[in-house]
Amino acid sequence: MALDCDFDVIIVNYNGAGVLGAALSSCLAEGVPATSCIVVDNGSRDASQALVRDDFPGVIWIGNPCNAGFARAVNQGLRQARAKLVLILNNDAELLPGALASLSACFAAHPQAAVIAPRLVDAAGAAQNVAAPWPRWWREILPKSLLKRLAPQHFGGRLAQVGEDRTVASVIGAAMAVRRSAVANFGPMDEDFFFYLEETEWCERAWRHGWQVWFCPRASVRHRLGATAKRFEAAARIEFHRSRLLYARKVEGFWAWAFLVLWLPIRTAIDWLAQGILTLASLGALAAARQRFRVYGHLLVWHLRGRPSHLGLPDKCREPEA
């Protein structure tokens, strides 16, 4: 099937041999040539490379010797890309029929769009979060569930009832399409972010440079939510807090960063104590409470130890010696 739009696809992979094939197959089914599919691998130790070599000849493989992080891997793919439009797709996501054609139409309809997100759905077709407001320090004080109840139009990220294109503050990085000419204007992803909030900072930067970020509901992508985060829950929480502090320092300013440096460990300690009390009250019968108690404990220790850089997700590339 010939595609009427000009797309390259970048898939960042980390030990994703079990899902990578479905992601690539969905791209080929949408008419993307194998030579326009770029897999950037972050030091996988599984059969990912053999899968691509044997089952998807022509796909471009960029192999890192270690886990370089999402932003750095995306930028490696962007340097390889040649198409006007680039889809950044999780290895645990699959394009549904017509997704790329709808995204292409969205770009044509909105010439100032730099980033466009499709609808994200789970295996049953239920909507997942696809958009998010920009992080702000004061929102860390209130529970996210309360914010969604108070202002669902602003804080609700699923947009399940939205049927027309609309602008959003930022999008979820599981599937997002970008206009390469816009990226050339406001710059690639910030590689200081290892995992989490890199796409959020990118979207906010796009807006500051006069570009727009859109949600295109007619394009749909099936996503197996949080596969990496579920495998490394405590480590993923550490990475989120690290990225949250980095975002505050880079985007919100010194005082927002200083507040969060104090507040995040306090909130973590409160959550840890609450889950400990719940675990004791249930005599350990609540598995979810036990798991959250363990995760918050690891996170609290990370804060109390001064947030060491070597803790977090595994197999990270070491920073070069100064």
Rank of each mutant, 00 (worst) to 15 (best):
G31E: 14
A71Y: 05
A81S: 15
L85V: 11
A50L: 05
P65L: 13
A105P: 01
A22T: 10
N90H: 10
P118Y: 01
N67G: 02
A101I: 13
L96W: 09
V52Y: 05
G69H: 04
V74S: 08
D41Q: 01
Q112A: 06
I38T: 12
P111A: 02
G31H: 14
A34H: 06
C27K: 03
P33W: 09
R45E: 13
C37H: 00
A117R: 01
E30Y: 06
Q80A: 09
P111V: 00
A29Y: 14
A101V: 14
V86Q: 11
T35Y: 05
V40M: 08
A99K: 07
G31A: 14
A81G: 12
D54T: 14
D55C: 09
E30Q: 15
A113G: 05
S25Y: 04
P111L: 01
I116D: 04
N13T: 00
A34P: 05
I38P: 10
N91V: 06
P118L: 05
L103K: 03
D92Y: 13
D92M: 14
I38D: 11
S26V: 09
G69F: 07
Q49Y: 01
I62M: 12
A83T: 06
G77K: 12
L120I: 04
R82P: 03
A17Q: 02
T35A: 13
P33T: 04
L87W: 15
G98F: 15
L103E: 12
L24V: 15
D54Y: 09
P97W: 14
A22E: 12
A93C: 09
T35V: 02
